[in-house]
C-alpha cells in the first residue's frame, strides 16, 4: 500500500516536472486576444512622408509581423514569413520596431522584403500598445479589426501550418 503511494507521488512529480519544464515562460497569454487591434498611424519605413493606419486593413484578414534589423531571430524567421507572404493567404504588414531607417532598409535589401509594406515605429510606442516584448511577434487580425492570434518569438513552419494558416482560412471564410 505504502509502495503504491510512494510510486504514485513520484509519478505525479515526474509528470509535473515534465509539463512544467516544457512550458515556455516567455509565452505570456496576451490580454489583447479578441480585442480590437490598437490604433496607429505611422510613417512608412521606405517613405517617411506617407502614413499607414491599421484602419486601412478593415475588411480583410491580415498578419502583422513585428521585426527589427537588430533582432537575430527576425532574420531566422524571415524565410518563414517570406513563404507565408508568398502563399498569398493574407497580406503581411511589417511593424519595424525601435529600429533606424539606415539599418532597417539595408537589412531588407540584403535579406529580401516579404512585406506588403512596413511601418516605422522608431520609439516603440505602438509596440507598447500591442504588448510587444520579445521581437519578433506576429499577430493575426480579422476583418473586424480584432486580434485573433498572437505568436511570440520566431515563426516556424509548424506554427504557420498548424495554427496560422488554418486560422486565417477560417477567418477569411467567415465573410
Amino acid at each position: 500500500m505504502k509502495v503504491v503511494w510512494v510510486i504514485g507521488a513520484f509519478v505525479a512529480l515526474v509528470v509535473l516536472l515534465a509539463v512544467g519544464l516544457r512550458l515556455d515562460p516567455r509565452e505570456v497569454p496576451s490580454p489583447l486576444i479578441d480585442k480590437p487591434a490598437p490604433q496607429f498611424e505611422l510613417p512608412l519605413l521606405n517613405a517617411p512622408d506617407k502614413t499607414f493606419s491599421q484602419k486601412q486593413m478593415l475588411g480583410s484578414v491580415w498578419v502583422l509581423n513585428v521585426w527589427a534589423s537588430w533582432c537575430p531571430p527576425c532574420l531566422e524567421e524571415l524565410p518563414v514569413v517570406t513563404e507565408l507572404a508568398r502563399s498569398g493567404i493574407a497580406p503581411v504588414i511589417g511593424l519595424n520596431y525601435k529600429d533606424a531607417r539606415e539599418d532597417a532598409l539595408p537589412w531588407l535589401k540584403r535579406n529580401g522584403d516579404p512585406y506588403k509594406l512596413s511601418v516605422y515605429d522608431a520609439e516603440g510606442r505602438i509596440g507598447i500598445d500591442y504588448g510587444v516584448y520579445g521581437v519578433p511577434e506576429t499577430y493575426v487580425i480579422d476583418r473586424a479589426g480584432l486580434i485573433r492570434y498572437k505568436h511570440i518569438g520566431p515563426l516556424t513552419p509548424e506554427v504557420v501550418q498548424k495554427k496560422l494558416q488554418p486560422l486565417v482560412k477560417e477567418l477569411a471564410s467567415r465573410g
Binding site: 505570456v28 497569454p29 496576451s30 490580454p31 489583447l32 500598445d129 504588448g131
Partner: peptide
C-alpha cells in the same frame, strides 16, 4: 500595463 501585457 495590464491591458497590454496581462496580469502577468
Amino acid at each position: 500595463m495590464v491591458a497590454r501585457y496581462g496580469d502577468f
